[in-house]
Structure formats: structure tokens, C-alpha cells
Design a protein around this nucleic acid. Sequence first.
DNA 1: AACCCAAAGTAGACGGTGACTACTTACTAG
DNA 2: CTAGTAAGTAGTCACCGTCTACTTTGGGTT
Lengths: 202, 202
Amino acid sequence: MVERPFHHGNLRAELLDHAEAVLREDGADGVSLRDLARRAGVSHGAPRSHFVDRQSLLDALAVRGFERLGVRLREVGAVDPDRAGGGTFEAAVQRVARAYVDFAVRDAALMELMFAAKTDHADEAVERAAEGLFATFDELLDQHRPDQPMSAHDRRRFGLLFAAAVQGTASLVGSRRISADQGAALVEDATGILVRTFFPGS
Amino acid sequence: MVERPFHHGNLRAELLDHAEAVLREDGADGVSLRDLARRAGVSHGAPRSHFVDRQSLLDALAVRGFERLGVRLREVGAVDPDRAGGGTFEAAVQRVARAYVDFAVRDAALMELMFAAKTDHADEAVERAAEGLFATFDELLDQHRPDQPMSAHDRRRFGLLFAAAVQGTASLVGSRRISADQGAALVEDATGILVRTFFPGS
DNA sequence: AACCCAAAGTAGACGGTGACTACTTACTAG
DNA sequence: CTAGTAAGTAGTCACCGTCTACTTTGGGTT
């Protein structure tokens, strides 16, 4: 790391890292390309080599967010009989729901970026990343109890209902309309209702 | 309305009207105090007499949004036996849910403002307006069928679950993760499940 | 009627920002 | 060795939010 006259290679990632920190601290409005350049010790025009736009920087943050959230949900969502706290399908869904809301609490501003209302047409990479997250939901649902098969129609319903429940709770918590604790209880309640509705036998 | 050298009285409302239009057209980022002043035919410093901040203008928009949404939901939420399309409790809840999502579709950017992730402490007026909306939910629930009384605990649960469902759907639709039609079907499904869970007899 | 005073609007300035352009440096493939 | 390209620099421009000092307006007070 000796005296690099020109930055060498990882500026894009460094900018995104700083941006993530600023985002957590001051929200999306606090994210300025010039400030990020300053933090990276680079001229104010340098970010333009990696992001044509300020919006494209924010989009890249959103993509990262979707990926990070997806990884976290997959970590937590496996139906593992040996896992402490229950290896049932419902337990796995509960863990995913809880992790989703936790993510929204910790990174409320990032979450807002990921689910921002698009006036003009959205960035393609963001859309792909979002679809990837929904695909992760579907993977999770494929772990349901094989003795109670789910029709394709019902799996789709469950996926959407689950997404609405966790996203709604995330939105309410992120905007401080309810507390983080209330959010945790709420999403647990909602998930329980969903599981009992689709798997009455449990 | 003849030749008013100084604007006379309704500038605040006019600014908010223009702001609402710009918000719908270009999103919150497109709302500029100077631009609004220009549209109102007023000097660039004039808005400062009514809004100390750009943020305070946006907060006022959010308050207006909560009020408008509340009015709409009350219009639609009465359990009226004579109403076409069903005077049952479930029908009323369905209409409210549908109106909520419709609002989010039509005014996605405004909705985003209303449920923005607050980094610093929120505006007091916005919080009051938001609480007013939740109070409207509670009013609606008080119309439930008297032959199946609801405990205070369950009413609270229902209110939060309903809020999460409609807000989650609104968020998914507003961010174009699902289409408006999918959102309408989704929120209907969710509401149906909620009603059947809390009023199994229906 | 004269005065005062607060509210509302004007005008100018300052620093910060996103975006654009022309230029330079470093690296790499042929 | 060299040509070409990706990455970074530096300067400029228009716009914006905010601050300050000043002016206009109109309603009460005495």
C-alpha cells in the first residue's frame, strides 16, 4: 500500500464501502459523490469512472443490499434437524422472517434504497438482484414438509404473502411507526398465521 | 386576483400543491424549493417564510398524505348494509385494504415520504398524522361483528397484522417488485386470511 | 390619524454538489 | 517497443439549500 499516484483497482469497492457507512449514518441524502471521493483520497471526478451517475452508485448499493440480505436469509433458512431451536419448516420460516426484519432495522436506509419508488424505469441490475431475493424465498419454500405437498399456485401465494408480511413489518419498523420489538413480535405472529393457514395439520 | 405585489396569504398551500404535482412526476428528488418558488411566481427565498427547511416541506407533504389517505379509508371503510358489493365486515376491510394499495400505486413517491426511514428524530406533526392513520384502522375494527367480540389483545394484533399486510403490499407495488394487479390480488388474499383467522365462523 | 410592529416577500451572497469536458497517467496486449 | 484503453485529475458550469439584511404590507394600538 505504498504511495500510489493513481488509485489501483479497488476504488469502486472502496467507494461503495464508504457509501454504505454514510448511508447507515446519515441516510441516502447524506451520500455525496464528492464526499466519497474525499474519503477515498481521490479527486472529485474519479467516481465517474465507476458510476456514471449518483443514482447508479445508489443502485449499486441496492444490489449489494439484495445480495447481502439473500446470503443472510440462506444462512438462516435451511431446515436442519440438528439445529438448536427447532428443525421444523415453521422454525426455518420464522428464522428467515426474523432475519429479514433484523436486516431492515439495522439498515433501514439501505432497505429504503432497495425498495425505492421508481418514477423512471428501474435499473436492470437492481431488478435482477430483487428477483434473486424472491427466488431465495421460493428455495426456502421448497423445503416444506413433503407429506403435505403444495401446489404451484399455493407456493406462489405463500411466497407473495410472506414477502408482503416481512416487507410490511420492515417498512413499519424502518419508519419508526412501531418499535423493533413490536416488529419482531408482529412478523412472528404473521408467519405463524401463514404456516397454520397453509399447513393446517401442524 | 389583481396584480398582487406581494403574495397574499395562500402561498404555503400553493407551494404544497405544486410540490405534490412534482412529487408525482419526478419523485422526491425532483422537489426543489427554488423550483417551487418559480412555479408560484415568487422569489427564491419566499418559501422560507413557510418552511424553515426543505425537509420541513417534505414533512408537510407527508402530513397531507396521511390525512388524505385517512379520509379516503374512512370514506370506504364504513360497514353499510345498503352498500353495493356487500355490507359485511369483511367487505369493508377488503375495501379499505384495496383503497390503501390503490393510494400507494397512484402516489408511490408520496407514500415513500410518509414511511421514510428516519435517521435523525422524526417530525412531530408527521408522527401525529401517522398515529391518526392507525387510529382510523382501529375505528374500522370497532365495527366488527358484535356477536363475535374481539379482545383488546386480538384487536391490537389484527390492527398490526392488517397494517403490515397493506403496507407490505404497498411497498412491493410501489417499488415495482410486483404489478398493481398482483398487489390487488395479494392484499385481497391477505385480508381474507386475516378475517378467517380471527373470525373462523364467517 | 399617526404610529408601530410582526408577518411575508425580496435580493444578494456563500459553499456544496452533480455533471460535463479536456487532459494526463498507468497498465497491458500485441 | 508501442499503441490503445481504463482510470484518475483538474477545471468549469448551473443549480440548489441556506443565511442574512432589507423592504413591503396590513392590522392594531393609542
